[in-house]
């Protein structure tokens, strides 16, 4: 009998603790939303991961912009796990949200999940990562103009190498459609440049940089082994550019090789300010968040929406970094 009471006691403690935990964070999140109306129409948002500041900014901007227009956004992180994302969508449908925003963990496996939302009559918007399956209905896809961003990267490379030209390498992340577009744009402008210029820029290698520091570092080391006279590296994102910078430093070649990154994440911008990276075509995740809510409103008004909204990238150089209040 004592044991029964002990077990029931622990179960109660566990539950009470949960009540405090859940109710505590629930009320704090409501406070931070300036007393958001719980009856306000909801927007369900499940993003690839909130660990990456890029998606975090998207999520925050969706939430703040939604509130301005009388919506309440529920922003969740799918932790790059398709099952978690699938459960998010199921829970959104039960909650009767007015719209669902996804940046899919998998561009194919997300198909049946989106179909589920389609069947429930809830419009689905995708951000950054598209789903191009034929039989799913996407109200609107919003992303950076990666092709144009790649072109900007090439312009920065040409600007940095100037009259001399030289050998450049690319650190790719070939799985991602966005990165393929970036490299395509990069190559196109370099090609155009070479047609006219006296000193050509030669793309000597395209290596897999994994899109992260470790693999970017390893790939850059290989690149420097093969081409000690390298003049520049284009990295498809900031983490791989920073990995490449570590490799340059190790080989003491940081003054010889020009680095161009991509994204303009805080650490990338700091590296540009410190002169480690020459320039980044930056994306505007804040604008993406705002444009998504704008698209949701248009959709709810019954206005026509384009299938895809592309947000242009802009070059961000050292002088921009020096004037950037977000950097210390």
């Amino acid at each position: 009998m004592i044991r029964l009471i002990a077990n029931l006691g622990t179960a109660t403690v566990l539950t009470l603790w949960l009540i405090v935990g859940v109710a505590g964070c629930n009320s704090s999140s409501q406070n931070s939303e300036n007393g958001g109306d719980s009856d306000a129409p909801k927007i369900g948002v499940s993003l690839l991961t909130l660990k990456n500041p890029f998606f975090d900014v998207i999520g925050n901007n969706i939430a703040s912009e939604a509130e301005k227009h009388g919506y309440q956004a529920i922003v969740q992180s799918a932790e790059e796990d398709i099952q978690i994302q699938g459960n998010h969508v199921k829970d959104f449908i039960v909650q009767g949200v007015s719209a669902i925003v996804l940046s899919p963990c998998e561009s194919e496996a997300i198909g049946p999940i989106i179909k589920e939302a389609n069947d429930a009559g809830i419009p689905v918007f995708t951000v950054d990562i598209p789903c191009r399956l034929p039989d799913v209905k996407i109200a609107c896809q919003i992303a950076s103009d990666n092709f144009q961003g790649g072109k900007e990267a090439a312009k920065a490379m040409i600007e940095a190498l100037g009259e001399d030209g030289g050998k450049v390498g690319i650190l790719h992340f070939v799985q991602a459609e966005s990165c393929q577009l970036r490299v395509k744009g990069f190559r196109e402008v370099i090609q155009q440049h070479n047609a006219a210029a006296a000193a050509k820029i030669e793309i000597v290698a395209e290596l897999e940089g994994g899109g992260d520091r470790d693999r970017g570092n390893a790939a850059a080391q290989d690149l420097l082994q093969a081409h000690p006279d390298l003049a520049g590296i284009f990295c498809i994102n900031d983490p791989s550019a920073l990995g490449a910078y570590a490799a340059l430093e190790k080989a003491n070649l940081q003054d010889q090789v020009v680095l161009i990154g991509f994204d303009g994440m805080p650490e990338g911008k700091q590296a540009i300010k410190d002169g480690k990276i020459y320039a980044d075509p930056v994306q505007f995740p804040d604008q993406m968040g705002v444009r998504i809510v704008d698209a949701i409103i248009k959709h709810s008004k019954g206005e026509e929406l384009p299938a895809e909204i592309l947000i242009p990238c802009e070059l961000y150089r050292q002088e921009d970094a020096q004037n950037d209040p977000s950097l210390r």
């Binding site: 629930n26 999140s29 909130l50 529920i74 459960n87 829970d91 039960v94």
Partner: peptide, 13 residues
């Protein structure tokens, strides 16, 4: 998990 999703608890929490 479901309850926390419905009550909008942050995924880190």
């Amino acid at each position: 998990r479901n309850g926390m999703n419905l009550t909008g608890v942050d995924s880190n929490v």
